[in-house]
Amino acid sequence: MRYGAVEAVHGISFTAEAGAVTALIGANGAGKSSTLAAISGLVPATGHVAFEGRDLSGSAPHAIVRAGIVQVPEGREILARMSVEENLLLGLRGSRDAVHGAYERFPILAERRALAAGNLSGGEQQMLAIARALLARPRLLLLDEPSLGLAPKMVAAVFEILADLKRQGVTMLLVEQNALRALRLADRAYVLDLGRITMSGTGEALLHDEAVARTYLGG
């Protein structure tokens, strides 16, 4: 069993365990997205990132992806003018056969493979972003607000995919405003408030915590 540990930014420190889903929840501007950006090397950070016994602090983004940390970014960041298939190929590490695997998992992408990705609906673009990240064979998948801006039906579909990935043992670090769904999925969760971790525990425990319910679950 591998053990993946992540520590990052702003004096906060947390760990994402291999094979588990870790969630960061908190209000807008709590520092969740900056944390993921720092782990991926997209913004300069003074923090410390250790992954599978390697120190990745200060590494270039492509070195971090090669080390196995792959991000599904907020806003999806698909390449709108390139085709669906080209988007997938850009994520691909290793054999091209894996693209067929992605089409089996996401049949809608197979249907639209030749279409410019900008023509996909928001939900389809999110599927594309997830499929593209999986093709990079992540050993830690970072997900930044995967449900943001999607219709309720698509939100459910995206979380179904994530639950499926969890069953397959994909290690995930999830940043999500939809705290209810995030906590239901997570093995472990941290509550971030104004750049500090104010609470942590199993997803189940936080789900039933009164303070969390009041602030983040709209209870």
Partner: peptide, 25 residues
Amino acid sequence: TALGREIRALAENPRAARILGIDVE
């Protein structure tokens, strides 16, 4: 080619290119 795809990705969206693990330099 793969190189051309990376160059086009970089031209369209540098942030996406970095997230995808393209060696930008």
